[in-house]
Nucleic acid binder design. Structure first.
Lengths: 241, 241
DNA sequence: GGCGATTTGGGAAAACTTTCACACGGGCGT
DNA sequence: ACGCCCGTGTGAAAGTTTTCCCAAATCGCC
């Protein structure tokens, strides 16, 4: 077992790891580490809110080599992760829906600083079409297919009302989009070759609400309320996937 | 083993299940099922985009009883899930940050229809404070502690710039908030008794970008491009956690 | 009133994810 | 040059989540 380690690329990266890589990259490019030459897995893991063994395992899927006894080179690790995530050059995305949320997303600076360019902002409302908002001209959703083709867009963000999301999604897929980030509170059906991520804002709150309920119940059954608030040894944290 | 099934409550519900319960509830209260008397696990699972065995297992944690040979009673299942999630009565949440995203969230109808009430919209910008946006008066962030106490707020949404998110978070926790939904692209540190969920919009795109890369690589190595787009047997789907 | 079609509930296996623990490699001080 | 210390990389164990599969329960029909 020595001639089979030259794979490096094409190796399977677990889904859970991919999600964390984005966080690592954000932390690495943040002010705290940008200046430094190297980081240890301990430091980076703590800044990212994960266990250091997990961070090392995650990075090991990249084939990225740290230096034993030293750590990882900040800039080359960042480059490595960027490459794996495919964000070395800005990718064009279509933002569909210029309502509340769509406009907020159009104005979100984080997209452009982290590898994406909003190539088009589309809407169905005649009152919006043609208007210039946040530097984007709102285009007619009727032009969706043309825009996708012209800009070579592979990723679409859906921020439309729930009722039309599936129809828009179908059109986007038909036009050639192969990844969709959906903010509409509906479960979209897409063909197997299309990747889909749902962000459901109310659902996030409901999950927190569940835990609130739990905490309330625990307090009641635990009887005395003392010492329940006592267990925060300095600065523990807990991020939930 | 027969006298130990009276637990029903206080049973552990896996984290992954909780996240899906919110989806099931949304689907159940949607137009497709609201009218109907019962649903089978197959139907509901398909509408929610999950495997039916998984749905049944999820529901089994609720102690919720379906009827064999029939399915689940739509309205009582909805009530059951609402109760478990703690959304039977609207909960008050504080929305911190009246920028781009904060304002969009303030205008998001889904919160109020799904169990939450924005009890306060706070910001630090003197130009915003006092203004009335989307029916909310923007309050001074200096009043955070007072608002949390007065309204009995347990859940806060952070939609501030990244630089101030940790400081705001600390203050909210100190004031008594025990659940935080964070949209700022930083990893927040919170004491162990506080629940935290992160929503990182750019990270979502980066995850999709990763898969785009993969698909592109697969196409190249697979050589011929035919039959790659052929495998969507009718309407398969795939939601990714 | 019994029989067959249907669909839940849950045990057991499989798959996936995280944590543990430690051997190994590399730099640094002397 | 040598050895010590530090921190990576990774097997193996532990934990979590999903899937498989079938016995048991219920309804509707004859």
């Amino acid at each position: 077992m020595s001639a089979e380690r030259q794979v490096l690329e094409g190796q399977r990266v677990p889904e859970a790891t991919v999600a964390r890589l984005a966080t690592y990259l954000r932390v690495l490019t943040g002010a705290d580490f940008h200046e430094r030459g190297t980081v240890s897995s301990e430091e980076l893991a703590s800044a990212a809110g994960v266990n250091s063994a997990l961070l090392r395992k995650d990075l090991s899927y990249l084939g990225s080599y740290g230096i034993r006894g030293v750590g990882y080179d900040v800039s080359s690790l960042g480059a490595q992760i960027s490459r794996i995530l495919g964000v070395t050059v800005n990718q064009s995305v279509a933002l569909i829906g210029a309502g509340n949320l769509g406009l907020a997303l159009a104005g979100y600076a984080g997209f452009s600083t982290r590898g994406f360019r909003i190539a088009a902002l589309l809407d169905a409302d005649p009152a919006m079409i043609g208007r210039d908002v946040r530097g984007f001209e709102v285009r007619d959703i009727a032009d969706l297919e043309a825009v996708v083709a012209a800009e070579g867009i592979a990723i679409a963000i859906i921020a439309t009302p729930a009722e039309v999301a599936q129809a828009i999604c179908d059109r986007a897929v038909e036009a050639g989009v192969t990844s969709i980030l959906n903010f509409a509170p509906v479960v979209l059906a897409v063909p197997a070759h299309v990747d889909l991520r749902q962000v459901d804002l109310a659902a996030e709150l409901q999950i927190l609400s569940f835990h609130e309920n739990r905490k309330a119940a625990a307090l009641l059954s635990a009887g005395n309320s003392a010492d329940v608030l006592e267990d925060d040894t300095s600065a523990r944290w807990r991020a939930e996937a």
